Amino acid sequence: MRIALLTLEALANRRAVRRFVAAHADDIALVGLSDPYRPQAGGAFGQTWRRLRRSGPRILPYLVLNFALPGLVDALRRAPPGDVDRTPLARSCAERGIPTAKVEDVNGPAFRDALAASGAELLVSFHFDQILTAETIAAAPFGGINVHPGLLPLHRGPVPTIHALLDEPIRLGVSIHRLAPRIDAGGLLAQTEMADAPGLTALAAAARLHEAALPLLDRVLPEIAAGSASETPLPVLPYRAFPTRAEMAALARKGRRAAGLSDVGEALRG
Rank of each mutant, 00 (worst) to 15 (best):
A195N: 10
M1F: 12
L214E: 05
Q191L: 01
L261C: 07
G187D: 08
G43R: 06
A204C: 05
G43E: 01
M194Q: 09
L261N: 11
T136E: 02
K254C: 13
L217D: 05
F128A: 02
N66Y: 06
D27P: 11
K254G: 13
L200F: 09
R257V: 11
P99R: 00
T7S: 07
R257N: 11
E95K: 10
L209A: 06
I170T: 15
R257K: 14
F142R: 15
S118Q: 03
A259F: 09
A140V: 03
T136A: 04
A41G: 15
A120I: 00
I183K: 13
A250H: 12
L189N: 07
V106H: 07
L209I: 08
M194H: 13
R257M: 10
R50M: 03
P81V: 00
F20S: 06
R15E: 12
K102Y: 15
H148A: 02
I59T: 14
A185T: 10
P222V: 03
N146I: 02
V103I: 05
L217P: 11
A250S: 10
A229L: 05
L166G: 08
A41D: 14
R96N: 12
G56A: 03
F45G: 12
E193N: 09
L216F: 06
P215D: 01
G260K: 01
A22Q: 04
A213Q: 06
R50L: 03
H24C: 02
P109E: 00
T232H: 12
A204N: 03
V264F: 05
L89A: 09
G46D: 08
L5Q: 03
G71P: 15
E168F: 09
I183L: 05
L216T: 06
A140G: 10
A79S: 09
L216M: 04
A29Y: 11
F242H: 15
Q47L: 12
T87K: 07
I131E: 01
P238Y: 04
G71A: 01
P243Q: 04
A114I: 00
A225Q: 12
F126W: 04
Q130P: 08
A25W: 12
V84S: 09
V103R: 08
M1V: 14
P36R: 02
L52E: 02
T7C: 08
L30T: 05
D105R: 07
R54P: 14
A258T: 02
R178W: 06
H177K: 04
R53H: 13
A226P: 15
T232Q: 13
E121V: 06
A207G: 09
V147G: 10
P109C: 00
V220L: 07
A252N: 11
I137F: 10
H24Q: 07
E95P: 12
Q40W: 11
P57R: 08
A110N: 10
L165K: 09
L5S: 04
A110R: 11
V31P: 14
I131V: 11
R77W: 10
G32A: 02
L221N: 10
